[in-house]
Design a protein around this nucleic acid. Structure first.
Length: 466
RNA sequence: GGCGGCGUAGCCAAGUGGUAAGGCAGAGGUCUGCAAAACCUUUAUUCGUCAGUUCGAUUCUGACCGCCGCCUCCA
């Protein structure tokens, strides 16, 4: 039974989509004001595992991820550089998708941009105004939280308790609001020079939260199955999305809210001031393989804080390498026909462990353990020559299935070696036959210099890229 | 002050009221011309501390210590 921890109820719930066999999900995507950091990618990898596991379970998935290409930081930085916001964001959007692909995430079905949905936001704000959830003040429009009694149902925010300890941080807004809790739907923009849109509401630009309500409902309907994002977004962003969407439609907005925890770097909060802030491309530039970063990010269940350490990252590289070696070794294994029943039972048990693990709120640690156990059992069988053709076929199929969720094995098709390299390999084999170890080692070193690593096995020489 | 999470071997960590998954690193061994890969064995009498409940707790309860997050624009 597939279960998710729903922030709305603060408990594990059985997952049942609104429409049988189909899942509609929304993920709060990047704000493209800078390169995305490794924490951003934890959220992306989490959502990727979610969508892939849903597909693994046989659901048709419609996944929307927004691109926030307008906000205060973007406007300010674009202005500093004398660029339009499109000019400013274009390279970051491109970089985001490059990173997104590199870390092995499957692209969402729809990736709407905020700036292309201003009209939908305006319509939504008008609906809220008609229903008494919004009011004007100094040309800006605010959401009236008093008009929405369910406010706080997601984050369980307790206003009375908050005021005592955190009051000095509240009400930093410079505009006139009826209530300090009210938030902007539409921010007035006075001059033509400033970034803004001319609308019935007056010239202005959208508040932070309205884009997600507008775009999610446009592409997924007024009520949909899953909304995911980082834990920090639960309040105020998602709380406000609920207020906006349910306020406007009178219908339930989202059925399951899933939030991933943040990561720590070497045990500490990641922050620029601590000097432990890493973008994805920083790590790649330092030589770490994207797949190792992916492996590390998914090795801990999404609701736990993950301690991102460089030791663990190196460990992840080794683990992935070992799994990939296993994949190659399996595909090249020669075996007799028939079936090893004991191994077959083990394979079936592991298949179940993997699925049960992911069904339990995406416990990727359990899923990875199952994969490692499969590797060990199969490698042992290969060593002992007890692997049979039926087992090989079954395990290859299972690996493919596992990897449809994990996506860590990568391309397995063999490339052709160029003639020169092949000639050297042949020459080395000949040298080894002559027991001319000096020449053999010389060739091996020569090829290693070209990042081609040779391994001598029972069944002949094997090569891989280093 | 309110709400929430965490503390398990050198490191990353899963997990459960019945006696500790998995990975990385380490040690020994097998195989090998050497290497690599792989395999086997080994590495926590113990799960922050102290009480309590229980036949039995790492798992439940309480207190304490330590760490982290959210409380208006941060994944």
């Amino acid at each position: 039974m597939l279960k998710f921890y729903n922030t709305l109820s603060n408990r594990l719930e059985e997952f049942k989509p609104l429409i049988d066999g189909e899942v509609r999900m929304y993920l709060c995507g990047p704000t493209v004001w800078d390169f995305a950091h490794v924490g951003n990618f934890r959220a992306n990898v989490f959502a990727d595992i979610l969508r892939r596991h849903l597909k693994f379970k046989g659901f048709k998935v419609t996944h929307v991820m927004n691109i926030t290409d307008v906000d205060d930081r973007i406007i300010a930085r674009a202005a500093e550089r004398g660029q339009t916001i499109d000019e400013y964001t274009a390279p970051y959007i491109e970089a985001f998708w490059q990173d997104f692909d590199a870390i092995g995430c499957e692209r969402p079905e729809i990736a709407p941009r905020a700036t292309e949905h201003i009209a939908e936001m305006v319509t939504l704000i008008e609906q809220l105004r008609e229903r008494g959830h919004a009011y004007n003040s100094d040309g800006s429009i605010y959401y009236r939280i008093n008009s929405f009694p369910a406010y706080g149902k997601l984050s369980k925010i307790n206003l009375a308790g908050n005021i005592a300890g955190a009051s000095e941080r509240i009400d930093t807004d410079r505009y006139e609001k009826e209530d300090a809790r009210d938030f902007a739907l539409w921010k007035a923009v006075e001059t033509e020079a400033e970034t803004g849109w001319d609308a019935e509401l007056g010239r202005g630009r959208p508040g932070w939260h309205i884009e997600c309500s507008a775009m999610a409902m446009k592409y997924l309907g007024t009520t949909f199955d899953i909304h995911a994002g980082g834990i920090d977004l639960a309040f105020p962003h998602h709380e406000n999305e609920i207020a906006q969407s349910e306020g406007a439609t009178g219908k339930e907005f989202v059925r399951y809210w899933l939030h991933n925890e943040h990561l720590k770097i070497e045990g500490e909060t990641m922050s620029k001031s601590k000097g432990n802030y890493y973008t994805f491309r920083d790590l790649v530039a330092q030589g770490y393989a994207p797949v190792a970063i992916r492996y590390l990010l998914l090795s801990v269940p999404y609701r736990k804080q993950l301690n991102f350490t460089f030791d663990a990252l190196r460990g992840a590289e080794k683990a992935v390498e070992s799994l990939r070696n296993f994949g190659t070794r399996l595909s090249e294994a020669r075996c007799e026909t028939g079936v090893n029943e004991e191994l077959r039972e083990t394979t079936a048990r592991i298949a179940k462990e993997f699925e049960t693990g992911l069904d339990d709120d995406l416990n990727t640690s359990v899923a990875l353990a199952a994969l490692h156990n499969l590797r060990n059992a199969t490698n042992t069988a290969i060593d002992e020559c007890t692997l049979r053709l039926v087992n090989k076929t079954e395990i290859e199929a299972l690996l493919k299935r596992f990897d449809s969720v994990l996506n860590i094995f990568g391309q397995t098709e063999r490339e052709m070696l160029d003639a020169e390299v092949q000639r050297l390999i042949d020459e080395r084999q000949e040298a080894r036959r002559r027991r001319d170890w000096a020449r053999a080692d010389e060739i091996r070193d020569e090829l290693a210099g070209r990042r081609i690593i040779l391994e001598d096995t029972r069944d002949g020489v094997r090569w891989k890229r280093g």
